[in-house]
Lab assay of single mutants.
Amino acid sequence: MAIVADHLGLSWTELARELNFSVDEINQIRVENPNSLISQSFMLLKKWVTRDGKNATTDALTSVLTKINRIDIVTLLE
């Protein structure tokens, strides 16, 4: 997760939308982690794993990252 969080940057909100997080949930992550995109990205991934449990797999994440054109991160995960 740390590799993904380190590289997402501003794309974390796009990833959040693709992972079916609501606008309110995205804003809450922003408010709770106001000074760091990496912290926002990491919190998103943590919430995703908590919410989706065993369905929050590397394959699922890779699929969504591909959908938002972040092949650079997919390559890092391989």
Rank of each mutant, 00 (worst) to 15 (best):
M1W: 14
M1E: 07
A2K: 11
A2T: 15
A2N: 15
A2S: 15
A2P: 09
A2V: 10
I3N: 06
I3G: 05
I3M: 11
I3R: 07
I3L: 13
I3A: 08
I3Q: 07
V4E: 00
V4I: 09
V4C: 07
V4F: 02
A5Y: 03
A5P: 01
A5W: 03
A5L: 01
D6E: 15
D6K: 15
D6S: 08
D6C: 06
H7A: 11
H7P: 01
H7V: 09
H7N: 08
H7E: 14
L8A: 00
L8T: 01
L8N: 03
G9V: 05
G9E: 08
G9Y: 01
L10G: 12
L10T: 12
L10Q: 14
L10E: 14
L10C: 13
S11C: 07
S11A: 07
S11M: 00
S11T: 07
S11K: 03
W12G: 00
W12A: 02
W12L: 02
T13D: 07
T13P: 15
T13H: 09
T13M: 12
E14C: 08
E14P: 05
E14M: 09
E14W: 06
E14S: 11
E14H: 10
L15W: 04
L15M: 12
A16T: 02
A16R: 01
A16E: 01
R17Q: 08
R17Y: 12
R17I: 06
R17G: 10
R17H: 09
R17S: 11
R17V: 10
E18D: 04
E18L: 04
E18N: 15
L19K: 01
L19Y: 01
N20E: 11
N20V: 04
N20L: 09
N20W: 01
N20Q: 07
F21W: 00
F21N: 05
F21G: 04
F21D: 00
S22Y: 04
S22C: 14
V23H: 14
V23C: 08
V23T: 13
V23P: 13
V23S: 12
V23L: 12
D24S: 09
D24Q: 15
E25D: 14
E25C: 02
E25Q: 08
I26P: 01
I26T: 03
I26N: 10
N27T: 09
N27H: 12
N27F: 08
N27I: 13
Q28G: 08
Q28R: 12
Q28C: 07
Q28E: 14
Q28V: 06
Q28H: 09
Q28T: 08
I29K: 01
I29R: 02
I29S: 02
I29C: 03
R30K: 13
V31K: 14
V31A: 12
E32S: 09
E32R: 10
N33K: 09
N33V: 10
N33M: 10
N33H: 13
P34F: 06
N35I: 07
S36I: 02
S36Q: 07
S36M: 03
S36K: 04
S36C: 09
L37H: 11
L37N: 07
L37E: 14
L37G: 06
L37F: 08
I38R: 15
I38Q: 10
I38K: 14
S39C: 13
S39I: 05
S39F: 06
Q40G: 03
Q40H: 04
Q40W: 03
S41G: 12
S41Q: 01
F42K: 15
F42S: 15
F42Q: 15
F42W: 14
F42C: 09
M43P: 01
L44I: 07
L44A: 06
L44C: 10
L45Q: 02
L45H: 06
K46M: 09
K46P: 01
K46T: 12
K46L: 06
K47F: 10
K47G: 07
K47Y: 06
K47C: 07
K47D: 09
W48N: 00
W48M: 04
W48H: 03
W48G: 02
V49I: 12
V49S: 13
V49P: 00
V49K: 11
V49T: 11
V49E: 15
V49R: 14
T50H: 14
T50Q: 13
T50E: 13
R51S: 06
R51K: 05
D52F: 03
D52T: 04
G53A: 06
G53F: 03
G53Q: 12
G53S: 07
G53D: 05
K54G: 14
K54N: 07
K54Y: 10
N55Y: 12
N55V: 11
N55K: 13
A56P: 07
A56L: 06
A56Q: 07
A56D: 04
T57C: 14
T57P: 01
T57S: 10
T58W: 10
T58E: 11
T58D: 15
T58L: 13
T58Q: 14
D59L: 10
D59C: 13
D59Q: 14
A60D: 04
A60G: 08
A60M: 14
A60S: 10
A60I: 08
A60W: 06
L61R: 06
L61Y: 00
L61F: 02
L61V: 01
L61E: 00
T62K: 15
T62E: 07
T62H: 07
T62M: 15
S63D: 14
S63I: 08
S63E: 11
S63M: 12
S63C: 11
S63L: 14
V64Q: 15
V64T: 11
V64P: 14
V64I: 08
V64Y: 09
V64L: 15
V64A: 11
L65W: 01
L65V: 03
L65D: 15
L65R: 01
T66W: 09
T66P: 05
T66Q: 15
K67T: 08
K67H: 08
I68G: 01
N69P: 02
N69R: 08
N69V: 01
N69S: 08
R70C: 02
R70K: 06
D72T: 01
D72G: 01
D72L: 03
D72A: 03
I73H: 03
I73A: 04
I73Y: 00
I73L: 10
I73E: 00
V74S: 04
V74D: 00
T75E: 15
T75Q: 14
L76T: 09
L76I: 15
L76A: 15
L77R: 01
L77I: 07
L77W: 05
L77M: 13
E78C: 08
E78T: 12
E78M: 09
E78W: 04
E78D: 13
